[in-house]
Amino acid sequence: MRRVLPVAGLVLALLWLVVPLAPVLVWAGAERWSYPDLLPGAWGVTGWRDAAAAGLPFALLRSLALGLAVAAVATPLGVMTGRVLGWRLTGRPRLVVAALLVPLVLPPFAVAMGLDVVLIRVGLPELVSVVLLLSVVAIPYTAYTSATAFARTSPELEAQARALGATPRQARLRVVLPAVRGSILVAALLAFLVGWSDYVVTLLVGGGQLVTAPVLLGAAASGSGNDAAVAAMALATLVPPVALVTVAALRVRSSGRTAADRLPESVPPEERMR
C-alpha cells in the first residue's frame, strides 16, 4: 500500500498534465470534427497550413530569440546570486531571498500594468524593456537553481584550485563552473521558458512590436471556429520547450552521474568526512 500510493500519485499527476493535451493533438490533425463524432470525420493538414499562413514560423523564431535573450541576461545574474546564497557569502541571506521572491509573488500582469507607464517615460526601446522585465521574472528561478547547486558543491573546490596555482578567474571558470554545469543548464532553460511562453509583458510592454508564438496563439484562440489552426499553434508552441526539457533532463542526469563519479578524486577523504 505504501508503495502503491506514490506510484498512483505519479500516474495521476502525469495524466493531469497529458489528458488536456489529447484534444489538442487530435484537433491539430483534424480537417472536420463535428458533434457527436468521437473522432474527426476527416484528417488533414489544414490547421497547419492556416497556422503557417497566420505567421506561425516567424512567431516561433521571435519566441526563440526572446527566450535566448532572457536566458542570456538572467542566467549569469542568477548564477552570481546563487553563488552568494549557496556558499553563504552574505550576512543577510534572508534579505536576498526576500528580494528574489518579490517577482514571484507579484503576478507578471500587475508588474506589466504598473511598469509600462514608467518604462515608456524612461524611453527605453520596447524590446529592451521586455527583455529586462522578463529577466527580472526569470532571475529567481536561475538564482534558486544555482544556489542549490552551489550548496551541494564545496567552496573548498575554489580554494583548492587557487592553491594549485589557478588565478581567481581560472578557478571560477574552469573548476567551479564545470562542477555546477548541469544546474546552470537547467537555470538557463527555466529562463528561456519564461521568455518563450510570456504573453502579457511581450504584448503590453513590447507595444506589439514582437508578435511571438504565445501572442499569436492568444489572439487566434480568442475566436472560435479555427480550432485546427489553434491546435497546430498550441502544439508548435508546446513541443520545443518539452523537447528541450527532455534533452536537458537526460544530459543533467548523465553529467550528474559523472560528476558524482569524479567527486571522490577531487575531494580528499578527510574533506568528505566533514
Partner: peptide, 13 residues
C-alpha cells in the same frame, strides 16, 4: 497588423 486577443489589450497599451 498586431493581433490581440481582446481590443482591451490595445486600450491598455
Amino acid at each position: 497588423r498586431v493581433p490581440v486577443a481582446d481590443t482591451k489589450d490595445a486600450m491598455r497599451r
